[in-house]
Amino acid sequence: MEECRTVLCWFADPANWSGANGIPTRFLEHVWMSGLSVGIAAALALPVGLFIGHTRRGAFLAISIGNLGRAIPSFAILALALPVTIRLGLGLGFWPTVIALVALAIPPILTNTYAGVAGVDDDTLEAARGMGMREGQLLRRIELPLAAPLVVAGLRTAAVQVVATATLAALVAWGGLGRYIVDGFAQRRNDRVLGGAILVAVLAIVTELVFGLVERAVRPRTESRERRRLGLRAPAAGAEAPGGA
């Protein structure tokens, strides 16, 4: 009997659902790697973005990092991180991927946080100051809630890009769902390539949808038509920063 090599058979084969190269393991690796990278990037970029947005100092820095981040292909960052981590004794796979993905995730989070906080209406801030709010309260109770949709939009862009790019980790000998695509290409096994591609695509779309729901949940209910007209609503993936920078 000839071996079945369609993608349906690949998904149906119980051998693909267990062990170190099984779908659950690869899936969790992919999610873990993506979550870790977005987490690290957020821990770095959110405070800086809030600071720049609140003080309006260093906006040029935020915009430049955003532009540069878009200009350097993540594949290139991944490739560049490899010799560095090897020299530092951190080895192949895990660390070069984390470095590349963090570098990829920082620009959208940073520029969106900055743009969200800086975009808060001056009159609103003036009113809050008039009511006796201190700078810390201003940031927490006015700027952060108003900027929240844009901040989440930045996290969403970052997360979707990271999930997509984590696929390339397989090129530097790490796991994740990219393994199926890269190995499948090498073995000329289209069923594996397609299976991996479907899994990554589904994961990316689910990530996009989940963050879309969060974005909707954090949107201030007071958002007026005027705000929307001015283009201050949260842009979806791809438009990291409002304004042509």
Binding site: V160, V163, T165, I181, L194, G196, A197, A201, A204
Partner: peptide
């Protein structure tokens, strides 16, 4: 949203 490597695949 579809990852580029997946789309090419």
């Amino acid at each position: 949203t579809i990852p580029s490597l997946a789309l090419f695949a």
